[in-house]
Each structure stands twice: as C-alpha cells, then as structure tokens.
Design a protein around this nucleic acid. Structure first.
Lengths: 279, 279
DNA sequence: TTATTGAGGTAATAATACTACATAAAATAC
DNA sequence: GTATTTTATGTAGTATTATTACCTCAATAA
C-alpha cells in the first residue's frame, strides 16, 4: 500500500498528491487520523481525500485506512537502533522490541542444527544436568533449570561462582554442564569449567564465538549479539540465550520419546494443580 | 489483540462475551464491519460493543478495529506454530523462534504508551521498588532486579511466596511493587499484593487483561500471550514480560535525567570492572 | 469569445460511533 | 425475605465522520 502510494503519486491529480505527501510523511499518524484532519493537513477538501482513496482502488476512506494499517503492521523491518534521551515512550518500546526481534532472527539464522542435535543427544544420555551462569546469565541458568527439570532428570542452576565451583567438583562422567556467558570471558566460570572437566563432565557452552569459554567447552552453541547499543540494559543476549535453551529443552522433550513426554505430562499436571491459579 | 480477547474473554460481562465470540469466530470479517453489524450479530446493543472495546484498553471501537487489523496482518509473517514430535532440529528452532518473535511483535502492538509513562513516573517518584513473581515469573523478577538496581534506587526481587509476603508488610507509601504473573491468578501473589496495598505501596501488575491481579493493581501493563502451543515450555510469556520490564528500565533511565544517567554510568563502570570477563 | 471538460470545493445527507440516562438484574445488607 | 445498593445492559439522542450531489472555476479547444 505504501509502495503503491509512492509509485502512483505522480499520476495523481495535483491536490491528491498533497494528500499522498501528507500520508507518506507520517503513515503511522495517518492511520489514526480522521478524514478531516488529513484533509486539513493537506489543505484540501474532504472529498479530495476520498477521491485519493478511490484512485488507490479502495472503496472508501475506511478501507484505505485499514489497508494502510495492515501494511504498516506487517512490514517486517526490524533493526537495531540506539535509544536516545529524547525518545518518547512509543519510540523507546519500538526500538527495544525491534532490537530484540532482530537479535532473535539473528540467532535463528546462525543456529547450527547439527550441534543442536549433538547437544540434545548429550542431554538424553546424561544422568544430571547443571547450569552455570553469573549476573544476567544467572537468570538464564535459572530459567533453564525450570525448563529442564520438568523433563524428569535432575537439573540444577547455580549463579554464585563459589557454589558453582563446589558443585563442579562433585560431578562425574555422566554429568552435563551448561556454561552460560554472553562474553565467554568470565574468569570464575572458566575456572569452574576446568574443574568440571577434571571430573570428566561434558561441557556445553552457550557463548560468543572464539571466546575462551568456547575454546574450553566440548561443544559450543554460539550466541553472538552486538551489545553496543545495550548501554542501558542487555536484553538482547538475554533473550537469545533463553531462546537457545528453550529450543534445546523442547528438542529434548520431542526427541526423548514417550518416556520423557510422559514425565513431562506428569510434571505439567502437578504444575497445573498447584497453579490452577497461575501456571 | 486476538490473544488478549481470548485470554480476557472469561473476565468480561455476559453480553460482552457474546461480542468476543462473534469477533473470535470471524476476526477477518470483523475488521471490516461496522459497530452495528457486530452488535446485531452478537445480539447486543451498540454501547455494549463499545464497552467491550474499552475493556480491552481501547479508547473506542475505531481504535479496537485498527489494532485488530494490525494484529491480523502481522500474524502472517511470523506465527505461532505448534511443534510436533517428528520435527527436525531445524524446524524446531524455526518454530520456536518465530513464535517468540510473534509474541514480541504482539507486545509491541498492544503496548499502551500512556500507561508506560505513568509507570515510569511512579518509579521515578518512589523510594524503593520490589519485584514479586513465582516460578517462571520469578526468573523475570530477578532479571528486573538486575536491570533496575543499576539505576541507583533500591531494587529487590523475591520469588518465594512466603518471603514476598513478609517483604510486603514492610513496605510504605513510598514503595513501588511490580507483581508479575502470566495468568494473574496466582493466589499467593494476590494475597501479597493485598498486604502491600494495606501498607499503601503502589502496585503495578505485569499480567493478563482482566485477570484478578490486574483488578487488584493500581496500574496494569498487560502482557497477553496465547500459551496453548507452549505445552513444552512457556517461553513466550517469559520473553514478553522481560521485554516490557526492559522498556520500563530503559525508559526510566532516559526520563530520569542526568541524575539517573550518572548513577547508571557508575554502575556500568563497576560492572565492567568486575566483568571485564562477562557482563 | 464561447462551449466543453475536468479538477476541486461547498453544503447537505447518510452512516457511524459515542454519550447520557433509564431500567432491569444481581449482589449485598439488614 | 425484603430493602438497598451496585452492576449490567438497553434506549434514545447527539456528535462525529464519511459520503454524495451539486456547483464553480479554470483550462483547453473550436
């Protein structure tokens, strides 16, 4: 629709072009405007606006506005854009969510599916799984614990470096560790991983390509996110990590066969029972 | 919007539910209908339709139709799709991430910016802020704590119902509480909120439209997500809640002026110092 | 200059959305 | 169980908005 207006603009009559210009200048505002506000902004009469709509194959102004609105909603252009101090609440939320979406699309595109399968197999073969992360990644680790413990196997998250440390020394060759860090340069976590390796646990890193943590791990699920624009709060890496772990958990449930699906059903029932109120 | 109608349907009045049913039965047709055709199809009066729209946070029928249209349009690009047992790793990750993206786009479209501003003002005016959530929402609460404590004001998250309970009784009229729950039917949380209200704290709910929690709160930031497809793990509400809180935190930082920006700079430096390794 | 055509405005009309009020139903108190 | 209050929903009227019919003015051509 927007494209149609742009391309058709020159073949319109003079005052209809004024209407086109007003709409192209602020499409988002236009969908909320009435015909008279558009007419006055374009300095033309209301019938002219209607004639403009008819020229674009719409039966009336209503239909035009509807089509325009749908056009605006579906144009999937999401890109990172820095927030600035004089953004309105609306601009802010658009920027942040577009950035988050762009980051998820990036994860989707760079995802290595073979690695994904390997990790799922590792999980299905192990006895227990532990998630280590600090700060923001600690939240991700806890979220992962919630996802995985429902699959029936022991799943624990630690966000305190000292406890991670201690926990790692209790692992064995049938343990699986997920080490989560956006930068992959958390010294404490690297140390914990080396201890876990000493005890022959398998290590899966969820981190940036080429980082020390990626090098230390047996398998790495890369989650690279440009955080330049994240001065205020690092949402992008957070969401990306959560998404990756979600894919793993769902993949494990699906691939694990009836046994896991059954456990899952039982866990869900229990949850539903406790949270008739809130799941 | 569609999700909002679905999730909010049961908390609507009887005749408004008829309207909801008519619209859910034929959303595409509804966006082209006038208020009276919908009223007659639902066998209710026109004002009832308007009241229905208002119940969904729209200022009138026009806005409702517009939002619905945008919702329907954006449904096309990324859409919720249930995972199935014989999906490959690739299909799985596509489905999950597309679902997550759809959910974020949904948040973006349904976001009420005036409310957003109100909540930011509340935060800027308060002395301390606490985040309450259990289970999955507990993770969100902790993530929020990490975001907000960097702004310089006391910020604490509790995910244990009993501790929330105790904490709420220590609040005062200069306290701000964020109550987080996907369904808004967590009985423990509702109780905690009532205690917090007794102590005159301000309550902001991050929950579903028309839920008990939304009713109990002073202000509600609605996050409606269809979780039907989330048998395996509820990632969508998680991401949506995190995104909303991120927007709030960034909004507060931006709107709080130099004072907050300075505090943030100091906090970031400290974080960078500790996490040269990992932020 | 004077018809002829079409662009574009004015004013009236139709339609649509919305408001204020009244009544009926339900919930609560006595 | 009745009275009182509250809540839900419809009726009727009003305001807004879109649309139509018609008229004027300007441009072109005979």
């Amino acid at each position: 629709m927007l494209a149609k207006i742009k391309s058709g603009r020159d073949s319109l009559r003079k005052s209809e072009q004024k209407v086109a210009d007003v709409i192209l200048a602020d499409p988002d505002g236009s969908v909320q405007s009435s015909i008279q506000s558009i007419a006055s902004r374009a300095q033309v009469s209301e019938p002219t606006v209607i004639r403009f709509c008819r020229a674009l194959d719409c039966v009336g102004f209503q239909e035009f506005k509807l089509k325009l609105a749908q056009d605006l909603a579906s144009r999937g252009t999401f890109f990172y854009q820095d927030v600035s101090v004089d953004d309105t609440a609306k601009e802010l939320s658009t920027k942040i969510i577009d950035g988050a979406i762009a980051s998820l699309m990036h994860v989707k595109n760079q995802m290595n599916h073979a690695t994904l399968d390997q990790v799922i197999d590792l999980y299905l073969a192990c006895d227990r799984v532990e998630f280590y992360g600090s700060g923001g990644s600690g939240v991700v680790a806890e979220d992962a614990q919630l996802k995985f413990f429902r699959l029936g196997k022991t799943a624990i998250a630690y966000s305190d470096p000292h406890i991670q440390h201690a926990a790692a020394s209790l692992l064995n060759e049938r343990s699986l560790v997920f080490a989560i860090s956006a930068s992959g340069r958390n010294a404490d976590l690297l140390h914990t991983v080396s201890i876990a390796k000493d005890h022959r646990a398998s290590i899966v890193a969820i981190t940036a390509t080429g980082s020390p943590l990626a090098a230390a791990a047996d398998i790495t699920l890369t989650v690279d996110v440009v955080e330049d624009s994240d001065i205020f709060s690092p949402i992008k890496s957070r969401l990306a990590q959560i998404a990756v772990l979600d894919i793993l958990a769902v993949g494990a449930a699906v691939k694990g066969g009836d046994e896991i699906l059954e456990r899952l059903a039982r866990a869900s029932q229990a949850i539903d029972f406790k949270f008739v109120k809130d799941r």
